[in-house]
């Protein structure tokens, strides 16, 4: 798996419901270390002052996760489903699901992971990144996953994670949540630019790119 794909997966894990071992990896600094390692390998430059170490108890973290992302008056204030940031969630879910089906991405319609859940969408990006890498190696159709990555991140993730991070900034009392939110935005922005450039580069001059 490429460093970029792993980075997507790392972010995906941050936004899954915090099981005990996952929280422990936040507290212990394991997330920070993994992130720094993968970001470097993926070429993602970020402000070194970001701290991804959780400095509160697992109880407080879980409670805030629920209050931010799962329930609240009139709905979770920082919902993790992209459809909640769009005009019509059903349309969003349909498009996301069509992407998943097209690229044979296994979607489990259980637990908190509706198809438009952030972690699911990030994992799909990792899935496409993997397909892209595999196609490159096998001289296959790498253009399909590449263009899909570009379109998916442009139409979906890049259009709402900024809003999510802003909500978290306003609502959260835990710096870890704010920091990961901002970093996610930076990463998605970076990836959007990277994928657009890559796609443009290829579609304008495919032979040069391939060379």
């Amino acid at each position: 798996m490429s460093a970029t794909a792993s980075l997507y997966r790392l972010f995906a894990d941050v936004y899954l419901f915090p099981e005990a071992n996952r929280i422990q990896s936040f507290i212990s600094g394991e997330l920070q270390r993994n992130f720094e390692k993968l970001a470097g390998a993926a070429g993602f430059q970020f402000d070194p002052s970001y701290s991804l170490i959780l400095d509160t108890t697992s109880e407080v973290f879980e409670s805030e996760f629920i209050a931010l992302h799962e329930v609240g008056m009139g709905g979770a204030p920082c919902a993790l489903h992209s459809g909640h940031y769009m005009r019509d969630r059903s349309k969003t879910m349909e498009e996301v699901l069509r992407f998943y089906r097209f690229f044979h991405f296994k979607h489990e319609s259980t637990t908190d992971h509706f198809p438009d859940h952030l972690s699911k969408e990030l994992k799909f990006m990792a899935h496409l990144e993997g397909q892209f890498g595999a196609a490159e190696l096998s001289d296959g159709d790498f253009l399909s996953p590449l263009l899909a990555q570009r379109d998916f991140i442009t139409r979906n993730l890049n259009s709402w994670v900024g809003e999510l991070a802003a909500f978290i900034e306003n609502r959260s009392s835990i710096s870890f949540n704010k920091e990961t939110g901002h970093l996610l935005v930076e990463f998605v922005t970076y990836e959007t630019q990277r994928l657009n450039q890559l796609a443009d580069q290829f579609t304008e001059s495919p032979e040069e790119y391939k060379a």
């Binding site: 498009e95 069509r98 992407f99 089906r101 097209f102 159709d141 399909s144």
Partner: peptide, 13 residues
């Protein structure tokens, strides 16, 4: 068939 070149491709199904 099976190739993706734009978002409308996912809506063909």
């Amino acid at each position: 068939k099976g190739q993706y070149r734009g978002v409308d491709d996912i809506y063909r199904e």
